[in-house]
Amino acid sequence: MDYRLLMDTSILAGEIIMENGGEAYRAEETVNRMLNTSNAKHVEVVVMGTSMVATVSNPYRDAITATRRIRRRGTNLQRIAEVNVVSREMCEGRLSLEEAFHQLEELREKKQYPEWVRVIASMIGVMGFTYTFGGRGMDLLFAMLCGVAVYAVQYINRYTGLSGIINVALSSFAVSVVAVLLYHLFPNQMNPDTVIIGGLMLLVPGLAITNSARDLLAGDYVSGTARVMEAVVTSLAIVLGTGLALLLRSLI
């Protein structure tokens, strides 16, 4: 058995799970299961929120270790589901190691929806939440504009390579500024608060909150607290961006 390829494949699976918003214990379990197909004596996988280490060792053989630093952080639930499928099929022997590796490599960059669908989705998303939080009439139209604003900021930030936190701060600033400007243009026709709340729903750290709870419950305190901090810092970034815009509003 090709231990090196097995190690590359397994750690790639774990990496994809961690990059796309999976829980640390899920990544650990998946990598562990895949490495255990080698029947090695010792298999250890440690996932620590922002990095992961895996080792396979046998007596009379060199140990193989791989380390990965998780740099990207996004939400892509489909990739997590598909990694699950690939790892299960590989462990049951229905998929060869080479095929599994290639499928995972392809999966890593796979996107389901084209750009325009995502723009419309963020428009409708912001619009819907603006309504549920009490926006009516013209608010809904303006909310759609805010959705486009957030998407534009995130699209630009893909090329500037700014960190996730600054991205969130800039996006929340953009939402608030657009809403405040629209309020100044059409003073009596909208309620800027509901529009901003709708826009912020795109940015609130829902996934970090749920994942931190799951990781802490699984006894994974390092990853759990890392996720808690992610939620806290993301919220602070939202507060910063929105706060700046609201201060500008009170200055005008």
């Binding site: 963020s122 409708i124 998303g125 819907g128």
Partner: peptide
């Protein structure tokens, strides 16, 4: 109506989260 809009909004977010 609020629930319908919540449905719409969350469906749209599902697209952003790349749900199948």
């Amino acid at each position: 109506l609020q629930c319908v809009f919540a449905f719409l909004a969350v469906s749209a977010f599902c697209l952003l989260f790349e749900v199948p």
